[in-house]
Amino acid sequence: MADTDETPPARPLRADARRNRDRLLTVATELLADSHGQLSLEAVARRADVGIATLYRHFPTREALVLAVYHHEMEQLGRRAGELLAAHGPDEALARWLGELSLYGTTRPGVADAFRAAAASRDELVHRTYTHITTALTHLLRAAAQTGSTRTDIGADDLLPAVCGAWELPDTPTARQQAGRLVGLLIDGLHVTPQPPQAELP
């Protein structure tokens, strides 16, 4: 048989293993907000009612578990772009989505550092997580640009670092107000004032 460089596809998880993985992710998501970036694997396994060995089979390191939580939540946030566009006009959808993104990192310590490394990382999951967000933001920007009210020379890679600056803020009422003002400033910067039609020369 001829040699091949193709990697065989990963075997799908059994139903019980998939349930365990989903439960671990759910618990880790709940605990991460209160862990100040120091998520305890033992606490996750205990609350998920699985053995620590089961946790390590799915997530061999704490970093792997945290990244899986971020990836799961970024997938959800990516889908929110379509939901917001279906419920609101493009400009309003963009503003609401940026607001949700700006507040996300304040409840997820360490996510700012993870996303700063995303562009240069060779980790496939990190890259896919970053891509979920840039794809959703690009979709929103294009929809808003089609209305003629938003600049067309600003892309997701330009805007994302500015929004994620709010992720350095703590999860406090004051910080949430700051994040809202930051998003308002960015929306104002994206806004294009329609030019009045020029009068025809006689």
Rank of each mutant, 00 (worst) to 15 (best):
D3Q: 06
T4W: 03
T7G: 00
P8V: 10
P9I: 10
A10C: 02
R11M: 06
R11P: 00
R11V: 11
R14P: 00
A17I: 02
R18T: 08
R18F: 07
N20M: 12
R23A: 15
R23F: 02
L25Y: 09
V27Q: 07
V27F: 08
V27Y: 04
V27N: 05
A28E: 09
E30H: 11
A33H: 09
G37D: 06
Q38M: 08
S40L: 10
L41A: 12
E42W: 05
R47E: 12
A48C: 04
D49T: 11
D49M: 07
I52N: 02
R57M: 04
H58M: 06
P60M: 04
R62Y: 00
R62P: 00
R62I: 01
L65Y: 02
V66E: 10
A68M: 04
Y70T: 05
R79N: 05
R79C: 00
G82E: 14
G82H: 11
E83D: 12
L84A: 08
A86R: 13
A87D: 12
G89W: 04
E92R: 14
A95G: 06
W97G: 10
S102C: 14
L103V: 10
T106G: 05
T107K: 15
R108M: 11
V111S: 05
A114G: 03
A119T: 04
L125W: 02
V126K: 02
H127G: 10
R128W: 07
R128D: 13
T129Y: 02
Y130E: 05
H132G: 00
T135D: 13
A136R: 09
L137M: 15
T138W: 05
H139I: 04
L140E: 05
L141K: 11
R142T: 14
R142V: 10
Q146S: 13
T152Q: 15
D158W: 03
L159S: 07
L160H: 04
A162E: 03
A162K: 02
W167C: 02
E168P: 00
L169Y: 10
L169M: 10
P170C: 08
P173Q: 14
A175L: 08
A175I: 07
R176K: 15
Q177G: 13
Q178K: 07
Q178H: 14
V183T: 12
G184N: 12
G184D: 14
L186E: 10
G189Q: 15
L190N: 10
L190E: 09
Q198C: 06
Q198R: 15
E200T: 14
E200K: 12
L201E: 11
